[in-house]
């Protein structure tokens, strides 16, 4: 499966997904409410400790930031120009903690456990018309459709390349979209026929 989960048995792995999401939200809010670089730095240290407790090398924590490095650079440059380097550093630390903590949630929680957590959390919403079974169906259908549609997108691009790049991509994309919608109609009829 396309999942970022890293198996483990640490306390961080064992904590229920709902609590992890709650902790993340609480720390995220606190970082903006307690507007002080000392607090952010302490949180940064705490986050790195949590990575170690989860049995993850600190390079994984760095891996959460690496894709955003150029954004970090831009933000820091803007802060140095408009404010001061110390504010720039503060902003970067705060952002780094958020990215690393959210990454930790993702690395230590199976997607399937997260989906179960979401469905359990949706239970109380039943009375305002949310149907958790429908949500589960939609999630599993999406996971089923992603590889199918990736193929369609890939085929359209290949066909376009084969016929020359000057060929209008829309003349390939539009029939492909219409075909997939017709396929979805058939899937829907099949689900109804099974009476689920």
């Amino acid at each position: 499966m396309l999942d970022l989960y890293q198996a483990g048995t640490s306390p961080v792995h064992m904590l229920k997904p709902g609590w992890k999401i709650l902790c993340l939200a609480a720390v995220g809010s606190a970082l903006f409410a307690v507007d002080h670089i000392g607090f952010s730095t302490a949180m940064l240290a705490a986050t790195l400790v949590l990575y170690r407790i989860a049995g993850l090398p600190l390079s994984r924590a760095w891996g959460q930031i690496r894709p955003a490095v150029w954004v970090f650079g831009l933000i820091f440059a803007a802060q140095v120009i408009f404010n001061s380097w110390i504010i720039g550093l503060y902003v970067l630390i705060r952002l780094a903690v958020l990215l690393m903590l959210a990454g930790l949630l993702t690395l230590t929680t199976r997607s399937s456990d997260m989906i179960d957590g979401i469905n359990a959390g949706l239970g109380p919403l039943r009375r305002i018309g949310v149907n958790p079974e429908r949500v589960s169906l939609a999630i599993s259908l999406t996971l089923r459709f992603i590889p199918v549609l990736s193929h369609v997108v890939h085929d359209v691009r290949e066909a376009q390349r084969a016929r020359g790049l000057d060929r209008n991509i829309l003349s390939l994309a539009i029939p492909a979209i219409i075909r997939t919608i017709r396929m979805a109609d058939e899937v829907s009829d099949a689900i109804d026929a099974r009476g689920s």
Partner: peptide, 28 residues
């Protein structure tokens, strides 16, 4: 909403293979 929920629970579906709850706290 469903697409973003799948991103949030850790599937790397955003352009460039990004995913996880962290993207919601980032600059974008």
């Amino acid at each position: 909403v469903l697409f973003l929920a799948l991103v949030a629970i850790g599937l790397p579906l955003l352009a460039g293979g990004r995913g996880g709850a962290g993207v919601f706290f980032g600059a974008s």
